[in-house]
Amino acid sequence: MAQNIILVFVHLYFLEQLHVYLNQNTCLIFVLFFPQSNEVPNSSLCEHEGLKRSVRFLKDEGLELDTLITDRHRQNNKWIKENLDGTNHFYDIWHVAKGTGKKLDALAKVKDCDIVGKWKQSITNHMYWSAGCTPDNNADMIVAKWESVIQHVQNIHTNHQNALFQSCLHDPLEDDEREIKWLNPSIIYYAYSN
């Protein structure tokens, strides 16, 4: 029986935070070849060279890579598109959530948008929930759940636009239970127009 090979290429300190659910036909491999900075022209190329060495190692061992999980390093993305045709490439959620958090921090600094900063943790938690609590990693459902956060933060919990996920799953919320005020639609519009 053929196994799916998944290469998780992340920094060592992220491994303890990584939770991967596997089935019996999946082989998860952590390959971490990180060259010394004196082996490459500059230190920023260490990660890229490490990825190339890791993939080469798997190929030399006769293993076919099915899925690759990396951060959003642009040089790696380009190399993967050019050299790993047919390999599923995903970004690790920690880096995506970190990038989203930075964008929320920037928006919170805009005049009259400071309330967004109070929503940052809830929004990034929602991202983790969308990706981590979706059976079979159904990409369309993950996107539908993620998009629902726009309505949720405005106190709209039913009749969401995406047919795959039309309402929040939480119990009804009472206004006096909320520590954070709901977002005004004008803030949402500002965020998307800039």
Rank of each mutant, 00 (worst) to 15 (best):
H73D: 15
R74T: 14
R74E: 15
R74W: 09
R74Q: 15
R74F: 11
Q75K: 15
Q75P: 05
Q75W: 13
Q75Y: 13
N76G: 00
N76Q: 15
N76C: 12
N77W: 04
N77L: 12
K78T: 14
K78F: 04
K78W: 01
K78L: 10
W79Q: 07
W79P: 04
W79H: 04
I80Y: 05
I80T: 09
K81Y: 01
K81W: 01
E82H: 04
E82W: 00
E82G: 00
E82V: 01
E82D: 13
N83K: 06
N83G: 01
D85I: 13
G86K: 06
G86D: 08
T87K: 07
T87P: 03
T87H: 05
T87L: 06
N88I: 12
N88S: 04
N88P: 00
H89F: 08
H89T: 12
H89R: 09
F90W: 07
F90I: 02
F90L: 14
F90T: 01
F90N: 05
F90E: 10
Y91P: 01
D92W: 03
D92H: 08
D92G: 03
D92Q: 10
D92Y: 08
I93E: 11
I93G: 10
W94N: 11
W94G: 08
H95I: 06
V96D: 06
V96K: 06
A97T: 10
A97G: 12
K98A: 12
K98V: 05
G99R: 08
G99Q: 13
T100A: 15
T100R: 06
T100F: 14
T100Q: 13
T100W: 12
T100L: 15
G101H: 02
G101D: 02
G101I: 02
K102G: 14
K103L: 11
K103C: 06
K103F: 01
K103A: 12
L104G: 06
L104F: 07
L104A: 07
D105S: 04
A106L: 09
A106T: 12
L107N: 02
L107A: 11
L107F: 03
A108G: 08
A108D: 09
A108C: 07
K109D: 08
K109P: 00
K109V: 07
K109C: 05
K109Y: 00
K109T: 10
V110M: 07
V110Q: 11
V110T: 07
V110C: 03
V110K: 07
V110F: 01
K111C: 04
K111L: 06
K111Y: 02
K111N: 07
K111G: 03
D112A: 02
D112R: 04
